[in-house]
Design a protein around this nucleic acid. Sequence first.
DNA 1: GTGGGGCTTCCCACGGTGGGAAGGTCAAGG
DNA 2: CCTTGACCTTCCCACCGTGGGAAGCCCCAC
Lengths: 160, 160
Amino acid sequence: MSGAPVTIGEAARATGVSAKMIRYYEETGLIAPAARTRSGYRLYVASDLHALRFVRRARDLGFAVEDIRALLALWHDRARASAEVRALALAHVTDLRRRIDALEDMARTLEDLAAHCGGDARPDCPILDDLAAGPPPKPAATPTRGSRAGKASALPLRSR
Amino acid sequence: MSGAPVTIGEAARATGVSAKMIRYYEETGLIAPAARTRSGYRLYVASDLHALRFVRRARDLGFAVEDIRALLALWHDRARASAEVRALALAHVTDLRRRIDALEDMARTLEDLAAHCGGDARPDCPILDDLAAGPPPKPAATPTRGSRAGKASALPLRSR
DNA sequence: GTGGGGCTTCCCACGGTGGGAAGGTCAAGG
DNA sequence: CCTTGACCTTCCCACCGTGGGAAGCCCCAC
């Protein structure tokens, strides 16, 4: 229960955020600059640790750092509307689902190909054949490349 | 059907790999250095385009560039055993599935939280509460998961 | 006072991708 | 012949989040 400030190493251990990342978050303004000892050591009190755990949890849920910035702002705004938070979360879910679908497509395709691949000592291999054939034929009529559509967020993932 | 060599821009258009990326792949040794005109322009023949399409397709299937290096080697090795290719593909599928599961967990958790969130003008919000609570309690019992096991490949994703 | 572990800052790397500057080349059109 | 504009070249920078490591303080226990 000691409310005494701790150094960055302890904060890291206590929150699961590496010291490196804590400094990075501070540098980029995601978290407030920590207090310092006279000799320059960063010091963290309970509320700082709380914020760090918040960030950690949000990262675990796949939020990009920029999203977390917004979430933190809402967290600190005691008058926020829960609708705002909800919207943020659901937008993120949409993003996650899109990525899941993309990965799922890849996995299914590869499983299909693998299923038709002997997997023996012979060289014939539908997997390589598929790769060599290049991009799959466009499924539909549409102007041979309406393709250039929406950029999908550069997945903030890590699994650690 | 002209077998005439094309410049990098045409190669890019023909294969769906940007000129930037073609140069990058060459630089990193993924593809062989292109032939050059006397004035230094890169020139691509049909087999080069074929290789580029191969790379493109493999990227589309989520393979990391390093994996593609191996796949290309197998492709060029006419005596390869299809088992090798299959193993590579299935290892990648495993990886994809792991990532899918992770994303799925995130999405489900967020959906759960959102479901219990009023989403109105009031400030109470289980989503923020959850984030503020930090990492979820260990599911306990079982040998605390084999958890910190395998490093999960740093997701080669892009959706373009 | 000395050793070792912590802290500081600073730079570098990764995977892939795009942006853009500064300059060379090439073909078409005046 | 010369200009124009599209294309090519190399080179550096940025993104995002993370880790590695060097060089140099600081602090505590012995």
